[in-house]
Every structure is written in C-alpha cells, then in structure tokens.
Design a protein around this nucleic acid. Structure first.
Lengths: 338, 338
DNA sequence: AATACTTACAAAATCGATTTAGCACAGGTG
DNA sequence: CACCTGTGCTAAATCGATTTTGTAAGTATT
C-alpha cells in the first residue's frame, strides 16, 4: 500500500540505491555501470512501476520542474489561450505550470512572485502590470529565469515576447483607409502600459502618413479606475460629440466591448453609421452582430516563443540570450463592422 | 546570498534546530520551551525574515499544502469565477492551488489526476467529466480528500457541491409561464452528465405541472461530437420545424450562444418572435442585444462550500462528513429576451 | 613484486525541515 | 541515600531522492 521508494527498487534489484539512481538518470555510462546491471534495474523499475518522488528530487536538486505563470486576469480570454499553449508546451518538456492572477493589482503581483519564489518555481512567465517593475528587477538580480509577455518595461532589460503593436494598429488603419474611412477616432485607457503607448503612436503615425490631420478631439482616453458605467457614459458622450466620425479604433478588447454597448445604446448601426476595429479578438466580436473587425494576437506564437526563451535560460546558461526581445506580427480579421 | 535555513536561525539564537522548529510550529508549550527562549527565537526569526523551505517541509510531513483544481475548460467563464474564489479562499487557509483542464477529455483527466498525485497535492477539487469515474473512485479508495463540483456520478459516493439544477430550471420555466409562454422548446446535448439529465427532468415536470402536454418534437438533443457548424445547422432546422414555438430553454450556456447565432441567422427577433432562457450566465448574454434571461449559478457559493468540505476532510478526519452532498439555489436574472 | 590505474559498484553525505528518543539537572519521596 | 518525576532542552533519526567519496577486485606498469 505504501509508496515504492528508490531503496525498495534497489533491494529488489540487489544493488545499492545510488546505482539505481545513476541508471535512472542516464548516468550509467558515466558511472560505468555494466549493461547487464542497468538492464536488470530497468526491468525492475518497469515491472514495479516505480516513479521517483518529485518532492524529494526537488529538495535534493533544487529543481522543481515547475514554471510560474502570472497573468493580469485569469478570466480573460487572452489568458485562456495562453495558458493552454503554455501548459501543453511545458508538459512536453517535463514541466508543470502554476497559474496566478494579479487582478491588475501591483501589490498582489509582488506578493505572488514572492509566493512562487517560496514555492520554488524554476522560472517565471509574466504579463507585467504597472507597478511590478521592482519585483521583476529583483528576479533578474537573483538570476531567476524570466520572460515577459504581452508587455514590458522600457527600463528593464528582461526578455519579452509580444505582438508587434505598431504593426498591428497599422494593419487595422490601412484596412480602414482602404475601405474609405478617413475620420477615424481612437479610444484608449490611461494605464501606463508600453503596448498602449505603442498602439497610439501607430495610430497617429498612420494618420500622418495619409496626410490626415491629427485631431485631439478624436482621441478618448478613458479612466481605468472609473466604474464601468461611468466609462460607458463618457464613451457615449465622446461618440455623440464626434458625430461626424466614420470609424473608431479601440485599443483593447475591453474597450471594444464597451464600445459595442455604447453604440448599441445610441442605436448607431455598424458599419453604416460608424465602423469599428478593435485590437485583440474576443468571443463576443465573432458573435455580436454584425461581427467586429479585429487585430488578432498570435497568442499561440507568443506562448511558444516565451517558453522557448525561458527554456534557453533554464538550460545551464547557454550564453546571455541573444534575440531576447521578440515582436510577432498580428493578423487582421475582417468582419462586417468595417 | 544563500537561503536562510532553520539551522542558521538556531545558531543565531543559540539553540538547537529542533527547538526552533517546535517554537515555529506552535509546540512550544507542549515541548516545555521557556517563554524567554521562545521569544528570543521569534525575534531572531522576525529579524532575519526566515521562511521555512516548503519543499523540505513537504518531504518531511507529506503535506504539500497544495490543492488541485481540475476543470473542464480553463477558458470557460464558469472556471474563471470558480478559480478566483477558490484561490483566495485557499490562500486564506494557507493553501496553494494548481489548475488543470481536462478539455473535456476523459483520458487527459485521468492523466491529470495521476500527475497531480505524483505532484502530491493534498486534495482535489474536480468538475467531473464523463469517463473520469474510475479515476475518482481510485482517489476515494486511496482516501484522498476529494470534492466534486458542478456535477457528480450517481454511483460514486463522493462529496459534491452544485447548483440545484431542478430548482433552477423550474425558476426559468415559471418565469416563462408567467410571461405567458406555453409552447416551450428545450435544447440540450448528449453528454451523459447528471446535471443535464436533472435539468431535462425539471423541464418535463414543469410542463406536466402546468398540464401542458410534453411533445418530443420540441426537444432537441445536439450531438456533442458534431462540429460547431453542424450543430448550428441542426439547431436552425429545429427552430424552423417548430415555427409555432414561442420560447426556447437552453440547457447550457454553450447551447445558448449557439442559439443566439442560429436565431441571428434566421433573423428571428427576440423576444417578439421567440423568447429564450438559458441555464448558466455568460458575458455575452449581458451584452448581446437584447440581453438574454438566464439562470445564474451561485459560483462563489459553490466554490466556498467546496473548499470548506475539502478542508473538513483534510482536518484529521473529523468524522465521515455528514451533509456532504450540497445543492445551492440558482438565481433568475431577467433580461429582455423574455 | 610493488605500485598505479581501471572498473564497477557501495557507502555515506546531503538537501532542510519535523519528530522521536534521550539526557542532564532539579526537586520530591520513601 | 537511592529512586522517581518533571523540566527544558539537544541529539539523532527520518522523509526519498542525488551526488560525492570510498573501496575491493582486477589489470597494467615499472
């Protein structure tokens, strides 16, 4: 009934525990174990179904074979896809993943990192939220393997993987231009994330390239800490004040959903009265009539690349990681909102 | 730079490691440690910021202070709310949570349970999928603490917590009756989950109570393994064949979303031509015009109760758990689809 | 023939905690 | 004075692996 231990296996095979360990860890050659003995051990292991005790291994080696995945919100769809890919990818490499969400709360983020540290995860995959700078700096200082996803901090030189935000917005803007839209509004939010800045920069650049004058009135920056209702009201007012707009670009899917609701309330028909493009896809954009045109993030790609960067760090420092800042292209999905 | 160990603390306090351990684990009284010494130790611990090495504790005590949460799909909204509550609740009790999704795949579910077992989680919170019966039975046999959520297996006497499905459907049906609907269809899916059976039973019972004859034609059972497109087509056909229906009850939110799409395609306006009620809420039901009336699951309640049942099992068997099969009432949220 | 070097393992230390058994001293009892 | 009982702690065993060191037997070298 009790768990089979290495010692048991050793006794059954008539050898010392260390010998079994060597064989199981592929050091048979190195330790000059006879093939005969190694085979005997392997057969005992297979028959008995012995599996090493992870905790004991962890204690001895200091390797937990566990990765920590810290995301903003565990309910987001971004996380959902991310988690799936990361989990399967990690499993393939013999790693487990523990998830944590910061709920957009820097304090909680730091606490989580420390908690995971105590739990002894081998590496961190983080979608950084404002305020987590110091914790991440600390991780780098302690030479813990880290990869950031979706965003990064300009001052901190940690490897990261994200969508090419500039290019993504450009795709959307080009698409709008192609369809003949010119009076294009932009809705963003006042969170100091680099990717939001980048997206907005791309918006203004796109206008400039088309020689369309930038109009401050056309840009709405919502307040992150305001209530949903309040933001909805602000957004409605913005749309009404810009009644001559023919399209709106939403900087995040949260904003896009808000926009859907606002336009629904104002009985503005899409795309007749106003077109809409949103950065980052969402279930609802597929289903909501008439379907919203979006820039889709290459989430699987991001996850895969992030894991691979992390593994490179875990792999007995194989040099200081060149090409460690990666931006993957997004994809335009055209639906009926444009 | 290195980690502080118990031994270090002991040396700093001028006592033996065991003494420190006793004090830290609240066994000072029991072991007759003088208050003076205990206080000295505590002050050293606080000043040095010592924290016990979880892995070592785990190895010695066999307690990982970790719970395994296994859900169908990590992207579902049910999971999202569940995970949040469970995580905070667990943290409060000094436990960590690792998540896993079965992706509706029994084989993967079993594998996960075994993986978690190797990882040595102390207890399991599971939303069971068909085919996981044996793995769950095995857990019970090994006297592993388990609590099922959202569903259960009639043959297996494991504690579970779920919404009162019968009552929930009744709420929805009563609401439909109240609004004058009589020709009510029912859409379900052919997964052999007890909660689906229960919901359907409630539907037929509700009709009977109102002396409305049950008509087989009004019930559609979609095929789980069919593609989304195929099911959509089947559903459209069903709606067209039952053009005299005045309302549809969808048994799950997945089906409800499918229904939304079907009715969108058929240009059936809600609630004018046909009303809709769906079991289990979803973001989209709030946002999709005109808003779908739903039975909301008391997810937080389920999570809290499940944790508490699990803790009772972890608590040095405090008797064989009476009141271990809990059904919590759902709540009707009336929106404009009825 | 004595020394050195391989070979093929075994023994023991180690990771960082918990827990059981033990030990020295003080005070009380017969 | 011998014996027992508490007190207040320490020493050592333990959890289940990995890894370093040790060692006996056989072969090669001088």
């Amino acid at each position: 009934m009790k768990r089979l231990t290495l010692k048991d296996v050793a006794r059954m095979a008539g050898v010392a525990p260390s010998t079994v360990s060597f064989v199981l860890n592929g050091k048979a050659k190195q330790m000059r174990i006879r093939d005969e003995v190694a085979q005997k051990i392997m057969s005992v292991v297979n028959q008995s179904g012995y599996e090493p005790h992870r905790v004991a291994v962890n204690l001895r080696t200091g390797q937990s074979k566990t990765l920590g995945l810290i995301v903003e919100s565990i309910s987001g769809s971004f996380f959902a896809s991310l988690a799936r890919t990361i989990e399967t990818e990690a499993e393939r490499l013999g790693y487990n993943v523990v998830y944590c969400s910061t709920e957009n709360n820097a304090e909680k983020g730091g606490e989580l990192i420390r908690m995971l540290g105590r739990q002894m995860v081998d590496g961190y995959l983080i979608t950084p939220a404002p305020g987590m700078e110091n914790e991440i700096r600390r991780l780098l200082q302690m030479h813990k393997p880290v990869v950031l996803m979706d965003s990064y901090f300009p001052g901190i030189k940690a490897p990261y993987v994200l969508i090419d935000n500039f290019h993504g917005v450009q795709l959307g803007m080009d698409h709008l231009f192609e369809r003949g839209y010119r009076k294009i509004g932009y809705v963003t939010v006042d969170v100091s994330l680099i990717q939001l800045a980048e997206r907005q920069r791309s918006y203004t650049q796109a206008l400039k390239k088309k020689d369309i004058p930038f109009r401050k009135k056309r840009v709405l920056e919502l307040n992150y800490h305001d209530s949903r209702e309040q933001n909805l009201a602000t957004l409605e007012a913005f749309i009404q004040e810009n009644s001559d707009m023919d399209a709106i670009f939403f900087a995040t899917n949260y904003l896009g959903i808000l926009g859907l609701e606002a336009m629904g309330r104002l009985k503005i028909s899409m795309p007749k009265q106003m077109a809409a493009v949103c950065f980052d896809d969402h279930d609802i954009f597929r289903l909501y009539p008439p379907g919203i045109t979006v820039i889709e993030q290459p989430i699987e790609g991001i996850a895969a690349k992030a894991i691979s960067l992390l593994m490179k760090q875990l792999d007995k420092q194989s040099g200081p990681l060149k090409e460690s800042q990666v931006a993957l292209p997004g994809r335009l999905i055209v639906r009926s909102s444009t």
